[in-house]
Amino acid sequence: MHALDPQAVVRAQQGDEAERERLLAALEPILRSFFRSRIGAGPDADDLVQNTLIRVHRGLEALQNPARLKAFAMKAALFELQDFYRGRYSARESLYDPDRPPSDPAGVGSAGLRLDLERAMSTLTPHARRIVELRELGFPYAEIAETLETTEAAVKMQVKRAFERLRDALVAIVLAILATSPSV
């Protein structure tokens, strides 16, 4: 009997520790293969595998239909993946404040930065807005490109164009300074 068969799942749910170990061991390569295919091999994928296994371990008793283990494990993996994307910026924000440059070189980080988000975003095309939002949802450019069936470079070009449009909309004064500043 395979470790993922419903009878095996029932035994694991009923406290058979060996069966539970077998089940988790059988899930591990599936999850590893899945996460690697989505975010690549590396520590992040390893962490996601472990977190998903913990989620399955903790929630196994609540699984009402043992025949739906696949759906159960899939949702656990998808939830973990979304948590991972969401956490991308949490981790980064601990390194630097996204509201200002890392060193706030000009000391302007807190000045005049209240934005009319809707007005600013309305200057973007739906496609550009989609990319900006996907980025802020935590997706890397390569995955955004894959999702939108284009190339990473095309996505980055869109981001640059969005930046240009928003810059024009928000800080017209910068353009005047730009024209007189030396090249860097």
Partner: peptide, 19 residues
Amino acid sequence: NPALAEAFSRWNSLRAAVR
């Protein structure tokens, strides 16, 4: 270049607002 820094701050503010 303060202009560069300010543009960056505003861009990041907007991104944070989107988030």
